[in-house]
């Protein structure tokens, strides 16, 4: 995979949150939200990012878009390290990378009409001459996401969940981005609505040659949407590979446990559910060895000696585990 194919390259990204106590705000602990993540996203692909709560996937997404400032590492977008840019310089680049958020009810300003919401990006960057032009663009965007002129003057509370999310997608597309981070875009929607939104996203990706980072906890959905899947656990990527590699032949014990925790919708598969024991340790001051050690059914003493690194175990399939 050559460098020119990579749209986004994340190198050793770190983000910590500090717990402070007392009037003088002494630091008493450090939460390792994102702890040295390396990731490459190719142009035009959909990379699925799976993780449970505390995995750091949400923080990672926000670091990529500089909604949170990371503490260390590089985020190289189209050849440029965006972390080194000043806020002003980065503002220009923001147009190329947008995000669709989880709960459309809270990600849309309730006091704005659909037209205002969808064209806000254009107004902020001064991209349109006048209101007429903005309205035309708004109509075109609405058509792209399956809404119509009758929705222009509506308010978010007048729309259903699925329609709100379509508005959010239209808003993200207004600036003609190349890269879209989808942060659990359908988790707050009913399953019948979810399917339509996912189809919409697939069609838009083909139409506009978009690159997606699809973050979710719903593995069945991500299995359908993604070309490649990365699994995070406590701030680190533990396995990454092509979708069918990770889903059908996972190597990391956590990924195996995760997959076998999913209850099957096939009644004949009842009873195959296998829950891993224990709970994830706190991301506060994690141990200096494999973070899955306390829950791993295959743990050996060697696993306690150091943190495992990502190693290529077969073609394009990487695992961070001492067993390999």
């Amino acid at each position: 995979m050559s460098k020119t194919e990579a749209l986004l390259e994340i190198v050793d990204l770190k983000k910590y949150f500090y717990l402070r106590k007392g009037i003088l705000r002494r630091v008493i602990g450090r939460i390792h939200a994102v702890d040295g993540v390396n990731l490459t996203i190719r142009r035009g692909e959909t990379l699925g990012l799976i993780g449970e709560s505390g995995s750091g996937k949400t923080t990672l997404a926000r670091c990529i878009l500089r909604l949170i400032e990371p503490d260390d590492g590089k985020v190289i977008f189209d050849g440029e390290d965006i972390l080194k840019l000043s806020k002003k310089e980065f503002r220009r680049l923001r147009r190329k990378m947008q995000m669709v958020f989880q709960d459309p009810a809270s990600s849309l300003d309730p006091r704005m009409t659909v037209e205002a919401l969808v064209t806000e990006g254009l107004r902020l960057h001064g991209l349109c001459k006048d209101r007429e032009e903005r309205r035309d663009i708004a109509l075109k965007l609405l058509k792209d996401v399956g809404l119509g002129e009758e929705h222009l003057h509506k308010y978010p509370h007048e729309l259903s969940g699925g329609m709100k999310q379509r508005v959010a997608i239209a808003r993200a597309l207004a600036l003609q981005p190349e890269f879209l981070v989808l942060d659990e875009p359908t988790s707050a929607l009913d399953v019948s609505v979810q399917a339509k939104i996912l189809n919409l996203l697939i069609n838009l990706q083909k139409k506009y040659n978009l690159t997606y980072l699809f973050i979710t906890h719903d593995i069945s959905v991500v299995a359908h949407m993604s070309d490649r899947i990365a699994v995070m656990y406590l701030g680190k990527i533990v396995e990454i590979g092509e979708t069918n590699q990770v889903i059908n032949s996972p190597y990391h014990p956590y990924v195996k446990a995760l997959l076998s925790s999913i209850p099957s919708t096939d009644p004949k598969m009842r009873g195959r559910l296998k829950a891993p024991k224990g709970e994830p340790p706190s991301p506060l001051n994690p141990p200096p060895y494999c973070r899955f050690y306390n829950r791993c059914p295959l743990a050996r003493p060697a696993c306690k000696e150091s943190e495992p690194e990502l190693k290529e175990i077969e073609n394009n399939h990487y695992v961070a585990c001492h067993l390999y």
């Binding site: 259903s160 019948s192 189809n199 069945s220 299995a223 999913i262």
Partner: peptide
Amino acid sequence: KGLLSVVPKLHGVSKHFETIPGSL
């Protein structure tokens, strides 16, 4: 029937989701 076909299954094939027309 529609609901069962809409639910994504882990070991499915296509990059396309079935839908139920209309809305609630």
